[in-house]
């Protein structure tokens, strides 16, 4: 069964080149044996799956890919990279697609993941360490998903597993310097609102 109507193949190779450069991979090595998809723990939730994602990169199908939920579904387990006969680190290709999507301000299909990553890095940038209470609380507020995991969250707090007072790095200035020296996180790039700590 063919999906999605016809794909018009563009001679423009920019997506593949950008993804290859960011991921330090050669997507064109893929010969579509599907071993990655066969071993991917989340392929069944994906629309395309790892192999098709690679083909869509080869075909420069930027619009389909960058707005796809698939690129945010990758759990980063690296089973694909370990088993790929052409040594393509597909998890890194997924990362590169996320990065291109964020850099280009493409509205993500999975806003929950994007918000999670932005919050996480915001906390690390300002506190130096991750703080679950802040992360979970803010993420639930931001995604409007207040009730999910309320039970286990409460149990964790009761067991002292979610410290309400965050550990804070002493060298916070150094941490902020490190962030600004790295290419700045997408939260700033895309101009999206930054949540308060």
């Amino acid at each position: 069964m063919l999906i999605d109507g016809r794909v018009d193949v563009k001679p423009d190779n920019s997506l593949m080149h950008r993804v290859n450069a960011r991921a330090e991979q050669q997507v064109e090595l893929c010969y579509h044996c599907h071993k990655c998809t066969a071993g991917c723990p989340v392929a069944q939730e994906m629309r395309f799956g790892p192999d098709q994602v690679l083909l869509l990169v080869q075909l420069n199908q930027q619009d389909r890919l960058l707005s796809s939920r698939d690129i945010w579904l990758c759990a980063g387990c690296e089973a694909c990279a370990t088993r790929c006969p052409n040594e393509i680190d597909i998890a890194r290709v997924m990362d590169a697609l996320r990065q291109v999507a964020l850099a280009e301000g493409v509205r993500p299909a999975d806003t929950s993941s994007v918000k999670f990553h932005r919050l996480f890095l915001f906390l690390v940038e300002h506190l130096g360490r991750m703080n679950e209470a802040g992360l979970l609380g803010a993420h639930k507020l931001w995604t409007g998903n207040l009730l999910a995991d309320l039970g286990s969250g409460a149990v964790m707090v009761a067991k002292g597993k979610i410290p309400l007072v965050p550990h804070v790095l002493r060298d916070r200035a150094g941490m902020r310097r490190l962030f600004s020296r790295s290419l700045h996180p997408a939260a700033a790039d895309s101009g999206a609102e930054e949540p308060g700590p």
């Binding site: 063919l2 109507g5 794909v7 192999d51 083909l55």
Partner: peptide
């Protein structure tokens, strides 16, 4: 050129 890629289930058009 109207073809298909059966590995990805994509119908493919190339000029």
């Amino acid at each position: 050129v109207s073809g298909a890629d059966t590995l990805s289930d994509l119908a493919v058009d190339i000029l």
